[in-house]
Design a protein around this nucleic acid. Structure first.
Lengths: 200, 200
DNA sequence: CCAGATATGTAGTGTTCACTACAGATGTGG
DNA sequence: CCACATCTGTAGTGAACACTACATATCTGG
């Protein structure tokens, strides 16, 4: 009863490579060929080790969330609610634009499809969202000129903020969030805009 | 030199159906078979009219953004920056949970892949995001108990807000937003949390 | 050194996909 | 009524996909 031929690759190292592929191309956009090439193994090894494509994704997500939870522990260790939010959101700003990783967050980007031949679709969508952001920015420029917004406000930054909240709400809604949950988010966000108001 | 056989379907009606399919299943998750069935036509008619799948998406996006821009015109017609933000974000909360439409926003969901057999992947991702939201909520419960947050604050709502901003930033980063842009968003969001603080 | 067990590489499998050839149907201009 | 142009439905096409059968290689226990 021998123990069989030992595995020739390191599972964690291979998972890191798979994680990057899912992160960059999304679940459906990532092909087994891309995954196996990045992991440096052949399909049978992948299936023997992780079951199937979805099993590999879950293993990659486990690894991602393990690392992320360690970071979140540091985040919630901040002394105040404000400091927690600052540490988390500023940290995200840095991490999501770190050239060492694909842009964005695996937990969002993993659901984005960019299969071969349609990589430009997400950019097409982004361009349409940018139109509304520009519209908001123009409106906030006017608000500033009218004395409605503080002199210190950057209208483009405020418009980007409102757009970001809107996008976040969209993803939440797609995942099943109900109306009350979205309204609570909107309510806090509106208060943030109000705080930029000259009378606020 | 006759003018040929006339088209037997209405392009705008068909586009509305296609828009719903892209909205619900994402670009890659939507198959030509699903699209043609929803549109009530056969593939050759689709290709004769819209060129290819991506052409159909762009036509559907055109229709979506046309309707959306009309609504945005009403939004920016609000009297103050605060009212603009309120009208937009509360309107989004309602629209994105309207049972008459698929949940979420086509401009975000259109990039989400839910092909047959992997519909549960987006929910798997959402479940992982919820873990971090719960972590935040617990932290804000503590902050409230410590008198760091106002008595009127709902810790779950505030955690949901911070999570929504984080998700929005993730989508922006995926679309090419740079670090400074994300930091500006984070900065406004942090001020919103600060406004919920007892000393704020 | 042999038997059993597991991993690996090659070379496929069936399925599904976006897309289209083709023939017949339905219109217009002469 | 005829030549021509455009649409429609049937029935595919080749390509790409996730996944696997199989022979071979490499280990352990006895």
């Amino acid at each position: 009863m021998g123990m069989g031929r030992p595995r020739e690759f390191d599972a964690e190292t291979a998972l890191d490579q798979a994680m990057e592929v899912f992160w960059r191309h999304g679940y459906e956009g990532a092909t087994i060929a891309q995954l196996t090439e990045a992991m440096g193994i052949n399909p049978p090894s992948l299936y023997a080790c992780f079951g199937n494509k979805e099993g590999l994704l879950k293993a990659a997500l486990d690894r991602y969330t393990t690392l992320r939870n360690i970071w979140m522990d540091e985040v919630v260790a901040a002394p105040t609610a404000r400091a927690v939010a600052e540490r988390m959101l500023m940290g995200i700003a840095d991490k999501q634009t770190d050239p060492a990783n694909p842009p964005g967050c695996l937990l969002v980007q993993g659901g984005i499809a960019c299969g071969t031949g349609s990589e430009n679709v997400p950019f097409e969508l982004a361009a349409r969202r940018a139109q509304n952001e520009d519209q908001l920015r123009d409106r906030f420029v006017r608000a500033k000129a009218e004395g409605d917004l503080k002199e210190s406000v950057d209208p483009a930054a405020l418009a980007r903020y409102v757009s970001a909240v809107a996008v976040g709400m969209g993803v939440m809604a797609s995942s099943g969030a109900n109306r009350e949950a979205l309204r609570q988010v909107a309510d806090v966000a509106v208060q943030a805009v109000e705080a930029q108001s000259a009378r606020g």
